[in-house]
Simulated scan of single mutants.
Amino acid sequence: MGEMTKTSTKYCRKCKYSWKHSDTDIICGYIVATQMRRGCPVGMCDKFEKKGRKRKVQLK
């Protein structure tokens, strides 16, 4: 968590709490992941956490 940041969909796509709803829509899944409300208005966020990289599965 950090300071309040003005957000856009590009910024939200990099957050670990974002869910891709369709090709164009992104939904904040903070409440589902933490069972707590975000507590900040839409367009301003202090809950941003960068997504971890997915590992590729190697077939033998």
Rank of each mutant, 00 (worst) to 15 (best):
K10F: 10
K6Q: 05
I27K: 06
P41Y: 08
V32F: 05
G29N: 06
M4S: 12
M36E: 15
D46I: 01
K56V: 12
K20E: 10
R37E: 14
T34V: 11
Q35W: 02
K16N: 10
I27P: 06
K51E: 12
G29R: 04
R55M: 09
T24G: 06
E49H: 05
H21F: 07
T7E: 06
E49G: 09
V57L: 15
K16R: 15
K6R: 07
K51S: 07
S8A: 12
G43H: 03
T34I: 04
M4T: 08
W19M: 15
D46A: 05
T34M: 01
R13E: 14
G29H: 04
R13M: 13
H21G: 00
M36R: 15
S8D: 11
D25T: 14
V57T: 14
S8L: 05
C40R: 13
V42K: 11
G2A: 05
K60W: 02
M4K: 13
M36P: 00
Q35V: 05
D46T: 01
M1Q: 02
C15R: 10
R37A: 15
K10G: 11
I31F: 12
A33Q: 03
K51A: 06
C15N: 00
I31G: 07
H21Y: 11
Y17C: 11
G43R: 07
G43W: 08
Y17T: 03
K56H: 08
F48K: 04
V42G: 00
C40M: 14
T9P: 14
G39W: 01
I26G: 07
E3R: 09
R37G: 15
Q58T: 08
K54E: 10
Y11P: 04
T7F: 04
K54S: 12
M1I: 02
R38N: 05
Q58C: 08
K50S: 00
K10Y: 07
V42C: 02
K47L: 03
T9E: 15
C12Y: 00
T5W: 11
C15V: 04
H21R: 13
M44C: 07
E3I: 01
